[in-house]
């Protein structure tokens, strides 16, 4: 049965490059449109000015054919369009987009994507340390806990190439928003308290000028039952996740069975940073 299923997947060139669990929850090929991915915003009451500062401006996604000033449109890995996240041209700015669904079984979950990142090609220089980080996080709630696995590839910091995977379990302060007592918010993507994934250094194929893109494979496995990150893979590297833990907090009102997947990109310099997602597949054992 498993061989037959694998043969069916392999017969489809779009799905053949993934290793999904038994149930495909969603498969988003951005040649078909935005597929339910949108800009993240924090919580507010009465006035947008009540947003925590980090949540004010996380930028809408675009459908991009990766057009470059020198060689024109690169297209995506499969077809023409990728989902593009773009920061502002301010060092430390992040662009964050997500898709919101719910889960129906506390079992294994798998996220796979083909992605790449680049700075805006405003200079005729290599610019390989201009993108600070790209990352993925999950925002999940069950009957007892809200838990948020955060993983990022820290490409560079303050101009120094670091090229390593990190995670964040530290809980930023949960702050009251507005006056009703119903709304709270925490800026969990704050740049502090990130920790290294053991042996997490990885040099990705950046290529040799700022306008050349190579696509990378990433896979993250979670176990919704034990609330653990069980696997991180990027291209040929599979990481030992001993001690790699999610952010954990008590369950909150209005978030039952939440299953959000969030991607982001952060710039290290006063230049826009771009994260491109060719396609995203979320699957589960249910």
């Amino acid at each position: 049965m498993e061989d037959f299923r694998r043969a069916l997947l392999n017969a489809d060139p779009r799905l053949g490059k993934f290793d999904p669990l038994s149930r495909i929850i969603y498969y988003d090929d951005f040649d078909q449109g935005y597929q339910g991915w949108s800009e993240l915003i924090g919580n507010y009451e009465d006035d947008l000015s009540s947003l925590l500062p980090g949540y004010e401006d996380l930028r809408p996604p675009m459908l991009s054919n990766a057009t470059m000033w020198d060689t024109g449109s690169a297209g995506s890995m499969e077809g023409n369009y990728a989902l593009k996240l773009a920061t502002r041209a301010h060092a430390g700015h992040i662009a964050v987009d997500l898709k919101r669904v719910t889960w129906r079984h506390r079992g294994p979950l798998r996220l796979e994507t083909y992605f790449t990142f680049k700075p805006e090609a405003t200079e005729l220089r290599l610019s390989e340390t201009d993108v600070r980080a790209v990352g993925v996080l999950f925002d999940i709630q069950d009957s007892e806990n809200r838990w948020m696995p955060h993983l990022r590839y820290l490409n560079a910091l303050n101009g120094e190439q670091l090229a390593k995977w990190q995670f964040k379990r530290y809980r930023e302060p949960l702050l009251q928003i507005g006056g009703t007592g119903k709304t709270r918010s925490h800026f969990h993507l704050a740049p502090t308290h990130w920790e290294d994934v053991p042996n997490g250094r990885q040099i990705l194929c950046y290529n040799e000028i700022a306008t050349k893109l190579n696509w990378h494979y990433m896979r993250v496995d979670l176990d919704l039952a034990s609330r653990h990150i069980t696997r991180l893979q990027c291209n040929d590297r599979i990481y030992n996740l001993t001690g790699v833990e999610p952010m954990m907090m008590p369950a909150m009102a209005n978030l039952w069975c939440m299953l959000n997947v969030v991607f982001w990109v952060e710039t290290d310099v006063n230049k826009r940073a771009f994260l491109y997602l060719d396609s995203v597949l979320l699957s589960g054992e249910w």
Binding site: G33, Y34, L48, L51, E56, P60, M62
Partner: peptide
Amino acid sequence: QNYTATLERNR
């Protein structure tokens, strides 16, 4: 297809 992007918010 139709899509609305919020380019600036509270700016």
